[in-house]
Amino acid sequence: MDLGNVAIQLLSGMTVAGYLFMVSAGMTLVFGAMRVINIAHGSFYMYAAFIVAAIVGKGTGASGMFWVALLVAPLIVAAMGTATEVTIMRRIYTKEHLTQLLATFALFYIFADVALQIWGGAFRSVQAAPVLTGQVNVLGRSFPKYNFFVMGVAVVVGVAMWLLLQRTKLGWRIRAAVEDPELLAATGTNVRLLFTTVFTIGALLAGVAGAVVAPLVSVAPGLDAGILVEAFIVAVIGGLGSIAGAAIGAIILGLFQAIGILWVPTWASAFTYIAMILVLAVRPWGLLGTPER
């Protein structure tokens, strides 16, 4: 096992951590404020990837359409999020968990079927912009340049989220809603509108991840379910409701997968669950979570 190989696997792990963080940050934000697990959260991710594939098409990526797609896809998905919140989500916040699960599960299927109608079942591959393609040398091994771009976007998103939550009134309102939405309303905040905003931001985060990840994966049906499970595990490891927890959870999961690939490649995917079991055995509410409101 040479050092170059280890470095490559760790970097791959951090790339996975990058997009997992963005997806589960959205999920955990929505859960924190509204106490709903949205099963259809992965659908926003998949739609963004499909929209990028549709905009970029079969071209080489040289036309600049890739950048347009990277900007437009998350915005379209965010608008989908707004529409979903206003029509469906806001009706289920006060319902029982089972009702919430069934409703968002139904949404997941509806989104999947609509995607199949629009884009079909075939695999699509996306070419990134030329500046982002090619390889760089890491300790004598070549590693795709694009992966660094994914990590960079994740860091920017992470910092932006931190600034939003710590430095802006909207962020304080979101944190206040996590603690006591009723009191927040009594102090003059339109909590209904706030929830729409939070859900839209959640969808936007999934959309950014899906758009950025498009050149790394085969864009096809099934992306939604795959990411949902992993993002959920990340959110649970980090502690549902905690954005910083999502970041740490994503890094743990990414690195565990990398170690798995290095060590026992055939069992690599089991390492996801091993990571979750280990963390939850020590802290059942996740690393940065709190034991129940």
Binding site: K169, W172, R173, R175, A176, E179, L184
Partner: peptide, 18 residues
């Protein structure tokens, strides 16, 4: 104790200011 315990004293006041 119904204050927003996660926010600072200042942030608690600013959110309510009108």
């Amino acid at each position: 104790r119904r204050i927003f315990s996660d926010l600072t004293v200042r942030q608690n006041l600013e959110l309510a200011a009108h």
